[in-house]
Design a protein around this nucleic acid. Structure first.
Lengths: 136, 136
DNA sequence: CCGCATCCACCAGGATACTG
DNA sequence: CAGTATCCTGGTGGATGCGG
């Protein structure tokens, strides 16, 4: 039975897409930077070194799992450093690398844009939702 | 049975978190901007109006569902306009609003940072992965 | 051509409990 | 204190088919 069409087309499309993504690695990096926790962690580290528990407190609502995962990713990507100080209660500090610091202004700008335009956006939402109620 | 502790604490924590998020709406907006497709769509609309199918072709790998969903969200947030031209085959154009245009430079900067630092990041990853193989 | 509706797989991510 | 390990759920997002 030559019912390969569906499966084959899917596989083909997937390979093509993967190839495209691989050819354009900045896309993957963009995905990483688009992570909601990444921007928050980066902003939290804006003013110098912070301990793990400080970060957890600063970024309200993050689970340790996500925090650890995000920090590991950032460390792997060379955006933050992880410093373990062997003491009675272990102490771990995170700090932006120079690469991370070069990214910080951009993330801060996004955050600031969000804060200063949130009202415009919410107004637009109200207008949109109001219009939607009339048509249906 | 006064076994309210666990459930109650969870509910309490969730309410507290929701309250925090509601009190800080920029967090929600940050979540929106952190969407991977949002940045791509915005960048795709950088140089003027585009048709739906143009966008679909420009942003390789996006499903119509995600594209439509993203565009609707952006429209609702007042970042893009949607113009329907009634013709035999319907024609729909999307264009950045002035609000969207004010955001564009920031997104473009992020994209550019990603493109110009991808090599540093990949080098850092190789180093990190190499070190990880020794310790375990 | 543009988009909506439906179904469904998958994995991100939260809760919980346990170590060094 | 700073994780690691494990389980489990819900929402994201792809595939498909229909409608204007």
């Amino acid at each position: 039975m030559a019912t390969v069409t569906a499966a084959e087309r899917r596989a083909e499309a997937k390979r093509a897409y993967d190839a495209y993504v691989a050819a354009c690695p900045s896309r993957k990096l963009l995905d990483t930077l688009s992570d909601k926790w990444v921007s928050l962690v980066l902003n939290a580290l804006a003013d110098g070194s912070k301990r793990y528990s400080d970060l957890a407190r600063t970024i309200a609502g993050v689970s340790q799992k996500m925090l650890t995962q995000t920090l590991r990713g950032l460390e792997r990507d060379g955006l933050v450093t992880r410093t373990v100080t062997a003491a009675v209660p272990v102490r771990v500090d995170y700090r932006l690398t120079s690469l991370g610091e070069s990214l910080l202004p951009l993330m801060a700008a996004i955050k600031q844009w969000a804060e200063s335009h949130i009202e415009d956006v919410e107004a637009a939402r109200l207008r949109y939702d109001a219009d939607s109620e009339n048509s249906p």
